[in-house]
Simulated scan of single mutants.
Amino acid sequence: MPVFEYKCEECEKIFDVLVKTSDRDQGQKCPHCQSEKVKKLFSTFGIGRNSTSRPCGVPNTTPCGGGCGCGM
């Protein structure tokens, strides 16, 4: 099941929803204020990694620069 990211147009909170394929076109509600005025955001996707890379995906042998937030 895909995870979609939404932003509430009322309270401006961003939230994720795990959506069944059959429910993809159903309206979503903001879990914070229950508003139905939400907008689906364009989000990045996750990738797998192996034990030779950091959480950001950069190999352990290369400095990541710290801009990704992995803390390494």
Rank of each mutant, 00 (worst) to 15 (best):
C30K: 07
E9Y: 01
D25F: 14
D16N: 15
F4P: 00
T61Y: 10
L41F: 07
T44K: 15
R49K: 09
V38T: 15
H32N: 12
E36M: 02
T52K: 12
T61G: 12
T52W: 13
N50D: 15
H32V: 02
Q34P: 00
Y6I: 02
F42D: 12
G66N: 10
D23Y: 02
K20T: 10
C68E: 14
K7W: 04
D16W: 08
C64H: 09
K37A: 02
P59V: 06
K40I: 13
G57P: 01
C68V: 02
N60F: 08
E5L: 14
E9F: 00
G71C: 05
I47W: 12
S51H: 10
M1A: 13
T21R: 09
H32T: 00
G69M: 09
Q34M: 03
I14P: 00
V19P: 00
V17I: 13
P63E: 14
Y6W: 05
G46H: 06
R49Q: 01
Q34N: 12
M1T: 01
C30H: 08
S51A: 13
S51M: 09
K39A: 09
G67N: 08
P55E: 07
S35Y: 05
K29Y: 06
V38K: 09
F15L: 03
K39N: 07
S35T: 07
V17M: 10
S51F: 06
V19A: 06
F15T: 02
V3E: 15
C33W: 05
E36H: 04
D16I: 01
V58W: 03
F45L: 12
P31G: 07
E36C: 00
C8L: 08
N50C: 11
G71R: 05
H32C: 05
C70M: 05
F42M: 11
V19W: 00
V58Y: 06
I47A: 12
K29S: 11
S35K: 10
Q34G: 01
